[in-house]
Design a protein around this nucleic acid. Sequence first.
DNA 1: TCGACAGTCACGTCGCGTAAACGTCA
DNA 2: GTGACGTTTACGCGACGTGACTGTCG
Lengths: 147, 147
Amino acid sequence: MALGGSTVRKDGLHQIGEVAERTQLSLRTIRYYEEAGLAVPSGRTSGGFRLYTDEDIGRLELVKRLKVLDLPLDETKEMLSALEALRSSCPESAEQERLLEQVAEFVDEARNQAALLATRLEAAREALVEVREQLLAQRLACLGERR
Amino acid sequence: MALGGSTVRKDGLHQIGEVAERTQLSLRTIRYYEEAGLAVPSGRTSGGFRLYTDEDIGRLELVKRLKVLDLPLDETKEMLSALEALRSSCPESAEQERLLEQVAEFVDEARNQAALLATRLEAAREALVEVREQLLAQRLACLGERR
DNA sequence: TCGACAGTCACGTCGCGTAAACGTCA
DNA sequence: GTGACGTTTACGCGACGTGACTGTCG
């Protein structure tokens, strides 16, 4: 057991298995993200194997972090491209303004998601309390009947 | 518009539309819960219309409250039947003990779910902060370049 | 040449939404 | 007999899991 580590290629590129291990995403998920246009590998071998640069991996990790917001994949995609476009369009142009606004929208939406999560958490806690109360009531009724 | 209220039947039974309105669940959802064995109507008309007692409706409402825990439906179902079994098996029997333990397990799992929700909420907040920081950094870089 | 790793279909899952085509009720 | 209300059947979705079978790498 514990046979050889993951293939680290000489050219500094990584194939999907290693990427999966590093990102803790499944192969299926990584391929699905590619299909959805979220994170496309920079290259392929002549035989068709996907090849990821470190940057590609970074993008996958960003996707993973954004995923906790629970947005649909296509919105995550838009958010990603807005962020990347921002990064490369520095001047204070109209373009820049537009992108900033777009990202701000996403941030708002994400904040709403977070608020929604908080609400659900509260509801879950209440549901728990309720079940416990039922249990207590049950026990009491039980004692009452036993005398 | 606003034509006649929902059919309130003379026998105190309710058909699915009224139930949907009262529980705020869709018809589809109610039927699906039946299919899954979560909440089966006590009766049907000779023509096949589902008929729900007030108790049936209560059960649906309980299901709805439990749903915020985000458990898979089959676990919700088990929890439900454990709770109901508890209610009807009062004596301090081995049976009773077993059921209490089972419910306790579900409560634990639910608590874990709640904790998980809290974690996700925290992660979402962090992701938000991160995006904002990127935006700020972007702006600063921008100013730097503009001089 | 071998075995680990990769590739592409393609169907399964879960909790419903959304028709379509038809039957039942007051 | 006319609508409003109900029925079953079945396909769609989103984000993958899980094979099955085949091809590619060191």
